[in-house]
Amino acid sequence: MHLWSFYQNDFIEDFQRENETIIWLDYTKPSRLRSQIEEFQAIIDKLLPLDIIKVTLNAHAASYLEAQKENKPDVIQNQRLVELCEKLGDIFPSAKVTTDMMTHNRFPEALSVILEFAANIATQVRPNIYFQPITSFSYADGQKMLTITGILLEKDKQIDFFDKTNIGKWELSNINWGKPLNINIPNLTIKERLYIDSLLPNSNVENIQSELGFSFDKDDDVSIDMLKTYVLFYRQSPFFSRIVV
């Protein structure tokens, strides 16, 4: 593995694809959304079929336009839509992004639609190639984020790709630009984590909830959803702890 330090724009301008490539565009600043989307398009332009792109965007609605206390929800959502539209202009998918997506929970959906439109514009010049999404997750590590991974495919190789990889059958895949899967895992103590892990994989979520005897949220349904997400990801979910060697 080689590591280089570049300014992002310099990297995108100078990058020449030589081998099979995986690129992760890891963005955080909402104010730069337009140039981030354009960089995503520029990278698509430079890659070839079977190359993989992962893009992470800040999906925290309030970071794009903070809700003013005196405003009602529909006013806030309308203002956010106008802001997003003005920011993106011709790369804003007016037919698909709606005001009801301008909420904290659904904002990642709007960004997913924006990335879909951007990818379709970028591949217009190569009509036989398209950007095939593979996974789409939203999560919060401080701010809500969206991360979408996809692969460039030749249209006539689509069936072959899914036959060979079985990605469509993977429970975490999202191959039709569907709603991003929200990763909302409860904050667990070591004791809680060890206890829940000891019940897995042979217990269902309702049983675990009942065995624990308390909820992770004041709404029991939300608590169950959090546990379900944990059960889905517990093998991949990292655990950080201070250790003395």
């Binding site: 724009n9 337009r34 140039s35 539209c85 003005e86 920011k87 993106l88 011709d90």
Partner: peptide
Amino acid sequence: DEETEGIRRRNDD
């Protein structure tokens, strides 16, 4: 400078 370099902060009306 950014616009000249193709880094657009927002749509241009």
